[in-house]
Design a protein around this nucleic acid. Sequence first.
DNA 1: CCGCGGGCCTGAGAGC
DNA 2: TGCTCTCAGGCCCGCG
Length: 293
Amino acid sequence: MPELPEVETVRRGLVPAMEGARFAAVEARRPDLRFPFPADFAARLHGATVTALTRRAKYLLAELSTGDVLLMHLGMSGSFRVETAEKTRQPGDFHHARGAPGLHDHVVFRMSSGAIVTYNDPRRFGFMKLVAADALEAEPLLAGLGPEPLGNAFGAPLLARACAGKRTSLKAALLDQRVVAGLGNIYVCEALHRARLAPRRFAATLATRAGAPTPGALALAEAIRAVLGDAIAAGGSSLRDHRQTSGELGYFQHAFRVYDREGEPCATPACAGTVRRFVQNGRSTFWCPKCQR
DNA sequence: CCGCGGGCCTGAGAGC
DNA sequence: TGCTCTCAGGCCCGCG
């Protein structure tokens, strides 16, 4: 499910419930997600105050008063929901609730704010990991991540440099978290379409030329920022699993220009093209052969 | 360095 | 109704 806009939407939903609050009770309802929980998982969280809830790429980081950082990843199907003790789930609510807890509710945090934060993940590709804050720089999961696409440092020059010498396609380059951190299959397709760049084009063709970023790199950097910004403003994209922490759906899927739109007319004004799909690096690529070059 | 295939899991949808 | 097959927003590994 979640790419950067979905993870950012989740982060914003968790902030009021978790930032400044203590873990009053922690329950891991099964021994593992993608990885086993450490034996002291609940004990290490219990009583800790969340001093900040941040995001890096598709990772959520809860910085704790104890000097630990709780690193969380939603995998393909992870979601959080936030409830209060007063307002618990009703039949038919988010996560198929029929009384508590629901199917695939794997982790429950009861916070001192009164919020009940539940992590649900049918496929269990997500995970939670506790890392000492002073070891975060050496954390293998984070080391090597590329720039944050919405950060100040990111732009055409950085993108052009990252593309230099890459003997791979633009699609594969953008999916590579070392090049830009946080994009996944949907937003790579959407960004390439907005930039009018063909997914099979060699990444190296965007590399810096004569000391200046190419027009393609300028267009792509701008398209990446625009599509992510628009998607965050829409609460992310809900295709299958993604929900905001309130249970509401995101609605950016209605604004897709190519993703999952095979056979439909291209959304570019005055382009009479048709959206096509093909498999690239094992994943579906959607694009318009007419206006993407 | 690169693409590919397989693996980790469950669930939804299509086709029969 | 129910079976089987394919595919899905992520990411890691080993192979050639």
